[in-house]
Amino acid sequence: MDIFIDIILLTLLSATALAVARIRKLFCAIMMFGIFSLVSACLFVTMDAVDVAFTEAAVGTGIATILMLATMALTSTEEKRPPYQPLVALLVVVVTGSVLVYGTMDLPDYGDPMAPIHQHVAPRYIQQSPEEVGPPNMVTSVLASYRGFDTLGETAVIFTAGLSIYALLGLGRRENRDHIVEDDHA
């Protein structure tokens, strides 16, 4: 049963992605991207990644879509028709894709419990984390405790992104300050 839901969602995802690639109106493309994120969040739920699904639903569907819409409102709403045929790009994509498919040939099947990824460090996380760290949610204990350095780095990246936005766009303060100055003169 799971596998059918999985296949249906993946097919929906590919249809949405193709629509994003084809549509020239940016508003529609951005909304399709929001749908794409939401469907991928559903897919993550079927693959038992509830935390990831939660994040994807909040971040990909909510914040990313809204930021893209804000950018579209500030720039242009329609993409121009490219003057040339995309044959070379298509060729590059097809060749890269076939090489990648060749690379996945000997990967373990979907859901194989004997896959190498499940043999190395994951058993330690699954068996020991309730005694060593405590929280029932293993994702939290791995995220915050075993891999705390990673998360510190990610937080620093987010902070840096905030700083760059502040440097690039400001926070709409200039207009505010002008108002205050005018008020003072009045």
């Binding site: 994040t55 990824i117 460090v121 994951a122 996380y125 994702v139």
Partner: peptide, 14 residues
């Protein structure tokens, strides 16, 4: 396996 979940969780926000 919780490990890919952790990696991807942070990757989404970043």
């Amino acid at each position: 396996n919780p490990l890919p979940h952790v990696l991807i969780l942070t990757a989404i926000v970043v």
